[in-house]
Write a protein that binds this DNA or RNA. Structure first.
Lengths: 116, 116
DNA sequence: CTGCTAATTAACCGATGCATTAAATATGCG
DNA sequence: CGCATATTTAATGCATCGGTTAATTAGCAG
């Protein structure tokens, strides 16, 4: 029960079919049938992938007659990126340089003016 | 079978305990016992979380006597962020403005110089 | 109302995930 | 060697996941 938001987002993204669906939706809204077309899985399976994406906030859906259109909602990706940014200094080259620089300054303050 | 790298990374990140372990490791290497301490789950459970993180490339491990030390490896976070960057224009305000700007330029080229 | 199309829900199934406890393995030390 | 500590593996249980087919719901068109 009570799964936190970030877990919902990451586990929604953990499935390749769902990521493919998001990729398709980045080109525009689509109905369930349209989304299902490229995959050789059944319609109910796609329908449940969409529910997972919706629960994670990654898509929203609207009804137009008997068609349900899905739309990409990228806010959760912002949240996930924000979380990862907390680790940026461990992998981003420019951040690593900044880190080293700050460490050097720190060092120089404690042990200033080494000649040569 | 043959799970792709991104899926491994995202599903490793989908568990709150594992994210907490990464957070702890961002402050420095730690042994299994040290990592287990804040949680009220068994040692074997922690051990398996570490295996998941290792399989995703998010940590590396070394042995020192009977202690196994885990170290954060952030490269997979770079990969995940890179994937998300493909969607940046959908959520990053400055990217959205850029998008609008580019669209305007495109429009002006086709329909130039509307006076006043 | 009937029938058609779109989509979801129900019922089921096998695989995987995450936890447990108990047993096994690895390493250093007296 | 024999023991203590650190960690992993084995065996097990239960819940969730991702798929299926069959049945149901929703909306429009005649």
């Amino acid at each position: 029960m009570s799964t936190d938001r970030l877990s919902l987002i990451f586990s929604a993204l953990a499935d390749p079919t769902r990521r493919a669906i998001l990729a398709r939706l980045s080109e525009g809204e689509a109905t369930v049938n349209e989304l299902a077309e490229p995959f050789d899985i059944s319609l109910p399976a796609v329908s449940r992938h969409l529910k997972v994406l919706e629960n994670a906030g990654l898509i929203s859906r609207s009804r137009n007659a008997q068609w349900r259109s899905s739309k990409l909602e990228a806010e959760p990706l912002r949240e996930a990126t924000e979380w990862m940014d907390g680790y940026r200094r461990f992998w981003d080259a420019s951040f690593i340089r900044l880190d080293a620089h700050l460490r050097k300054i720190q060092h120089d303050l404690q042990d200033p003016g080494v000649k040569q």
